[in-house]
Write a protein that binds this DNA or RNA. Structure first.
Lengths: 226, 226
DNA sequence: TAAATAGTGTCTCTCAGACATTATGAA
DNA sequence: TTCATAATGTCTGAGAGACACTATTTA
């Protein structure tokens, strides 16, 4: 006989880069416990759903983003006995990277949602152990930009080298040399694919537009300054 | 009201390097489901225990290793609805790295345990989704040796450069150039601390003994061949 | 002595950091 | 023309791969 000993939930760290800032989607809780506090969006895993499916469902509910448009991966699982006053709740935290302003936001229920810069989010009083989860997620996201092409998931379908650089600078909180950055990303095989088009949306000389190539891992990695 | 919707367990990937081979501890299941199949050691998380504590408890039960002597970290969580025929079982897999031959093995219960080379383990019919978990754990362990000093956790308290190289070769399944390896590990700051002692336990010229330094991350990382 | 393993040195190539210069659009 | 941004080029130093050589033990 199987004894159900926990409630399993899925929480989401939905990150974006907007106005040059690395931001996370937080909701204001409408219900107890932690009513009125900021928290990560999330919910219970349904009976016939994988953890990844539950995370994807929450992501769509929360952002309205279309299936598969965002990067979604499991981050870690948090299950300390005292983390939820209601009892043993084990939450599987997921990381989502979405392009800037996917849709204004607003969950299906009455709670309000906001894109908060991660530095400010860490200073808020967050519900449950969400501050710890957020800290872990920020570090994971920063690390992933080093060896994966995921920075492009913060951009639109096509983007310029400078826009991609802006993502790295926002997430890492560091200025990068535009010339070295350009050389690095354009010489890494299969990272960026030129579309042939150009844009002047950022002013100045027209910039080439790229789309994300099919690399999985960057060899050698991008290097975080410092 | 809180609805308990799952059984939460902790499974362990206990890795070691023994006789120059990268091995994992598997047990032969004495009970259904999957009676007679090989499986990862694990068990239910107790009511007042963190996930890390549950993993540590299982590790001690399984290997008899003393608290804190091994490296233990969370790997990932597996919760597909059909993964356990008994119902919704969500398992939080953990990775443990222990020195060769920690103690012969033998769990507290009657099931037999063996150190199986990872290649052979992947070819066995494993219970549940343990083959997938094992694959993920092997990749995590291989990746971690690149940027962390964890290879030393497979060695005794003090070890030689050649012994450390043997760990990398076993885990990565690749020969490494002894001279370049020596230069790399001895010039990475705070990686290896000379004890002053030497040993001839591997024959030939006496080799310096080192203990693990206090680095957390290797900059630049060790590079996996290929 | 030879065999075995440990440890040092050298050369080359890749690549990151620093920074100058040229290119191409809009106001 | 001026300004803003994009793109290319050059120099240097750190460090990895390849491989020759020297050192210190046991048999």
């Amino acid at each position: 006989m199987l004894i159900l000993n926990a409630a399993v939930t899925v929480d989401l760290l939905i990150f974006t880069v907007q106005d040059g800032e690395f931001r996370v989607l937080l909701i204001e809780r409408a219900l107890d416990p932690f009513k009125g506090s900021w928290a990560l969006p999330g919910g219970f895993a349904l009976e016939d759903e994988t953890l990844a499916d539950a995370a994807e469902r929450e992501l769509v509910e929360e952002t309205g983003i279309r299936q598969g448009a965002a990067h979604l991966e499991q981050l870690a699982t948090y299950g300390d006995p005292g983390r939820d006053p209601r009892g043993r709740v084990v939450t599987v935290a997921h990381l989502a990277l979405v392009p800037g302003l996917p849709t204004p936001q607003g969950g299906s229920d009455a709670k309000s949602a906001s894109w908060i810069p991660v530095g400010a989010a860490l200073k808020k009083r967050l519900a449950f152990d969400h501050r710890r989860i957020l800290g872990d997620g920020i570090e994971r996201a920063r690390a992933k930009l080093e060896y994966s092409p995921l920075a492009a998931r913060f951009c639109e379908e096509t983007f310029t080298v400078a826009e991609l650089r802006g993502v790295y600078e926002a997430v890492w909180g560091h200025e990068l040399d535009p010339r070295n950055f350009h050389r690095k990303v354009t010489t890494t095989p299969d990272f960026l694919i030129p579309t042939g088009g150009t844009t002047t949306r950022n002013g100045g000389r027209p910039a080439q537009l790229f789309r994300l190539g099919q690399v999985e891992t960057l060899h050698p990695p991008m290097l975080r300054p410092e």
